[in-house]
Amino acid sequence: MEGEVTSSGPLVMEEYIAQSEPFYLPIGEEVPVFEAAYREKIPVLLKGPTGCGKTRFVEYMAWRLGKPLAVVQEKGRAAAQSQENGHVGRPLITVACHEDLTASDLVGRYLLEGDSTRWIDGPLTKAVRSGAICYLDEIVEARKDTTVLIHPLTDHRRILPIEKRGQILEADPGFLLVISYNPGYQSALKDLKHSTRQRFISMEFTYPPREAESLIIAHESGVGPETANDLAKLGEKVRNLTEHGLQEGVSTRLLIYAGKLIQEGIPSRRACQVAVVWALTDDADVQRSIEEVVSTIFE
């Protein structure tokens, strides 16, 4: 794994090429659908609550859609670490969007260097150039001017205008824009505009069913199948409270954390308290209710 941060500050960016297969348990038809979309260069919108596996899915798909080693080598990195029958994933650039993320944060900016200025590519530009999958997480959080960039990239044109340099960049054939969007907690103000929405095919993600989730928890945290099943059960019960006291149900990620703590020897009730109860809400009544659910399930 290798990352490169182009700018410090509030911008969080990861770029890496997966070296080994990320664990992903397909729940429905999402894998063939995504593959087809990739082949047809159709941008993808992933909808779903936080921590239900959207990012992991994109990582997994990036790995699956990986191209032969040689092509990656052209980019001049990661060659040495290649393994597993020479299979290396497609590069994936993930940008976690936040409310101060502007278009220039995505496209790039000039830096002062000596007496002159130097242009540095933003993550989106990098992906467009190199043919990576660019994953804009929580896109609605970003400022509205980012849509100016997204629109031409996501129709037949597949171009990225770089205003400050007066350039127009044509996307590499391998480039695909994937955005994610959590319809649950954004206010109506931040809803995705239809002109944006309708440029993507949408894939709905929900939390996995109990059996699948317990497999995921067992795999990721290393707890036994029984504990994993109890954790999945807890997840299911707590999610029943969504919209009634809880803004968002407990994510699979948190359940995995709880599993990891249990694996570390923390008593299960305590592990659930810190990983689930306190992590989810500050409302004392709701906390108490969830704690009661925890104490009902775990000894």
Partner: peptide
């Protein structure tokens, strides 16, 4: 009551 309401709701998933 409120705690138990949420508790029961969590267990059954109905309101």
């Amino acid at each position: 009551g409120e705690v138990l309401r949420l508790y029961c709701k969590a267990l059954t998933g109905t309101d």
